Computed example of a mutant assay.
Amino acid sequence: MGNDVVVTIVVACGAFKGSLTAIEACHHAAEGARRAYPDADVLERPVADGGGGSLEVMVAGGARRIPVTASGPTGETVDTSFAAIDPDTAFVEMADACGLLRLPGGRMSPLESSSRGVGEVILAALRSGRGNIHLGIGGSASTDGGTGMLSALGARFLDSSGVELPDGGGALVHLDSVDLDGLDPAVLVSRILVACDVDNPLLGPLGAARVYGPQKGATPDQVAGLEAGLSRLVEVLRDHGLDTDPDAPGSGAAGGVGFAARELLGASLDPGFGVLGTLTGLEDVVSAADLVVTGEGRLDDQTMHGKTPMGIAALCRSHGVPVVAVCGRLDLEADRVAEAGFAAAAALTEVEPDLDRSMANAGALLEDVAAEVVSRILS
């Protein structure tokens, strides 16, 4: 394709964790694309999957940020927000309200951390008149089965003396009864769609506590206690007459928020990239492109199991649009890159092998790498 041909390049990158947000990554990759093809129409469309940074992506896509004060993971007050998409629809990000990034000083608190904050933001969105809630639950700090979220929405979780349990998954072993009569009426008529990229069950060796508890700072003994608490939650809900299914895919997401949202709020769970892509109109932009540039911090075997670049690649394939990947580090052989659907892939570490220096200079390096890979395809 010659340089006299006007082309449309869509840059749809996720975050380069530890270096660049999705918005920053798109900006730098777009600068590289413009350097390679000065006459191109280069469009920046940052992408996310429902975890940290998703709220920023929604706002960058045109949604309006509505400030909310909520409870952080260990009860401290945090300033967060939801994204108002239209008068009826809002996007809520759990990570920004009560996720790992909100832990004071970054100190893990696996037994006490709660999902209450995300429930408070949901309630604020509902009280703004928006009954369609899109909920991103990646990056959670808690393993409380979603009881904190439900408590913020009006549910009560009681011990044998009828006293409400303190927040956090560590208290659930003392759960004796559940009172759902106080659930806010707006919740009962709302439509909640959860952006969720894991299919773990709530309990067992692949469940919320055993798989994700250690990532949230839980010791083996604490993992066992959290597992016992989640089991107790299921038992008490069944005693309450609720035929819950802890084995349903995604029930273990966000420490059990997926379970609570589906079983008690009637939510549906969909892949995060698809939810965010639909909300931002990504498919319409991609379908009209001549080339798409995507990427994130690392392309490896995990990427092949449904991470954001694979979602972009699938979208491009459905519209016959070539796609290239840029990343901080590339851990896929050439045949695997092709198998994933990428016409080419390039990494920052190919230019700067020292990982620390590569991360420190990620923006400038990404511009160079994007320029090279775009030139390679559109020359």
Rank of each mutant, 00 (worst) to 15 (best):
G2K: 11
N3M: 15
N3K: 15
V5Q: 14
V7S: 13
T8H: 13
I9P: 08
G14T: 02
K17Q: 06
E24T: 07
C26A: 05
H27C: 07
A29W: 00
A30E: 01
E31G: 01
A33C: 14
A36Y: 04
A40S: 14
L43A: 11
P46L: 03
V47A: 07
D49A: 12
M58D: 08
R65K: 15
A70Y: 09
T80W: 09
I85V: 14
D86Q: 15
T89R: 12
A90L: 10
D96C: 14
A97F: 12
G105V: 00
G105H: 04
P110W: 01
R116V: 10
G117Q: 11
L126V: 11
R127W: 06
S128R: 13
L135T: 02
G146A: 03
L150W: 01
L153V: 08
S161D: 15
S161A: 14
E164H: 09
L172V: 05
V178N: 10
G182N: 14
G182K: 10
L183A: 14
D184I: 10
L188W: 01
I192P: 06
C196M: 02
N200T: 10
P201T: 08
L202V: 02
L202W: 03
L203Y: 01
G207C: 02
R210D: 03
G217Y: 08
V223K: 03
A224N: 05
G229K: 06
S231R: 14
R232I: 02
V234I: 10
E235Y: 07
R238L: 12
D239V: 08
D245T: 14
D247Y: 10
A248S: 13
A248P: 12
P249V: 04
G250C: 11
G250I: 01
G255S: 08
G256W: 07
R262G: 00
R262T: 06
G266I: 09
A267N: 00
D270I: 07
V286S: 13
S287V: 05
L291D: 06
V292F: 07
V293K: 08
T303K: 06
P309R: 06
P309I: 03
M310L: 15
G311Y: 04
R317F: 07
V321H: 10
P322F: 02
E333I: 14
D335T: 14
A344D: 05
A347S: 15
L348P: 08
L348N: 05
E352A: 00
E352Q: 09
D354K: 07
D356I: 00
D356K: 00
M359L: 11
L366K: 08
A370I: 04
A371V: 05
